[in-house]
Design a protein around this nucleic acid. Structure first.
Length: 349
DNA sequence: AATTCGGGGTA
DNA sequence: TACCCAGAATT
């Protein structure tokens, strides 16, 4: 069952001419910059991206620079932005682009789609914005705007619903202004047809045609099926300090916060007595112990409840934990990417 | 189809 | 709190 959405194209393009947001990655013609912005914007708000975008393209001005970059330097530039696999995938794709496309992002939707970290949304966004290829870019904004427009109770978390909308939107893409149409839908979703709270329907260029507005259904549409609730994990974080240096540990290269640096830690809430006995078991008898405050961090699917200890050691040739590096506070700040989850303890270095 | 990947803004 | 954000990869 397909729907013809052709009746909204002119309204949206007219509205976009007057109301487009001015953003650092707009009004420029470098497809690589468009690519960087689209990766950063995945599940991430515009305001959060602005600073990261400027630093990133300054440090890596070309796809070749990205392809040859030090992975740890990339993670440092991404530090705090989240979803760190995005930057790993982007470098992997950059290497592919250098090897297969002479360092130039392909002007082809399906070729873009094959690159690591580029799915249907991002391929459509790059193709339409950077190359004016008439393909849609269906993100959460577009799903929300269109489902409200038609008063549809489709569950927008279902892959089938997104796929059908992509097929319908493909049919109405204008030959020359596909990038503008896609961005019009996104700007409308971000500024007028907003997700939380009351949308600003009185300002909407589509309100005369919008079923959700006419029937007062904007608080029930779009429908999103409920999510799993978060599990809680207890952790004990150690600030091991010796001769002005701190111990860091590199996380496993798969899974949560893959490849980032962390303070040594254990996956349980450790009492002082238990900690003292563990240290004793490892032959560690000279140290100063300080209990640090609790820390909490919420991820999408899990939350950490942490307690911390500062352990001041006279020497670091002990055999409690493996694979530690010892670095100064300044070096950590410049070179080591530590996720925000440890903020309660990085602030006490 | 369901889950896993961050972090912060907002009501 | 709970929800959401210019989603993609993995299972």
């Amino acid at each position: 069952m397909s729907t013809d959405y052709g009746f909204i194209v002119n309204d949206l393009l007219d509205w976009y001419d007057k109301n487009a947001r001015e953003l650092p990655w707009r009004n420029q013609s470098n497809p690589y910059f468009t690519w960087v912005s689209e990766i950063m914007l995945q599940q991430t708000r515009v305001e959060a991206v602005k600073g990261y975008f400027a630093r990133f393209v300054k440090a890596f001005p070309t796809i070749k620079d990205l392809a040859t970059a030090d992975p740890d330097q990339l993670l440092k530039l991404w530090e705090g932005l989240g979803y760190y696999n995005r930057v790993r995938n982007m470098q992997k794709a950059a290497i592919t682009v250098v090897e297969q496309y002479n360092g130039e992002l392909p002007r082809d939707y399906h070729a873009l789609l094959k690159l690591s970290g580029i799915g249907t949304y991002t391929a459509g966004a790059i193709a339409s914005i950077a190359y004016q290829i008439p393909v849609p870019a269906v993100d959460g904004n577009v799903l929300r705007v269109i489902k409200r427009l038609t008063g549809s109770y489709d569950d927008i978390t279902l892959p089938k619903v997104k796929k059908e909308l992509e097929e319908d939107m493909l049919k109405i893409m204008p030959a020359k202004h596909s990038g503008d149409l896609n961005q019009a839908l996104m700007d409308l979703g971000a500024t007028i047809c907003i997700p939380n709270g009351k949308p600003n329907c009185e300002q909407c260029p589509l309100n005369k045609k919008c079923k959700a507005f006419q029937k007062n259904l904007t608080d029930e549409i779009p429908v999103k099926s409920s999510k799993k609730k978060r599990t809680i994990e207890e952790k004990t974080i150690f600030l091991l300090e010796c001769n002005g240096k701190y111990a860091l540990h590199k996380r496993f290269d798969k899974g949560l916060l893959a490849g980032l640096w962390e303070f040594p830690n254990m996956n349980e809430a450790l009492s002082i007595e238990k900690l003292e006995s563990i240290l004793s078991e490892h032959g560690i008898h000279e140290y100063e112990l300080e209990l640090l405050g609790p820390g909490k961090h919420i991820f999408s699917h899990v939350q950490w409840h942490m307690i911390g200890y500062r352990i001041h050691l006279p020497k670091h040739d002990f055999e409690w934990m493996e694979d530690l590096v010892w670095v100064t506070k300044d070096t950590i700040a410049k070179e080591y990417a530590i996720p925000t989850a440890f903020k309660a303890y990085t602030s006490q270095l």
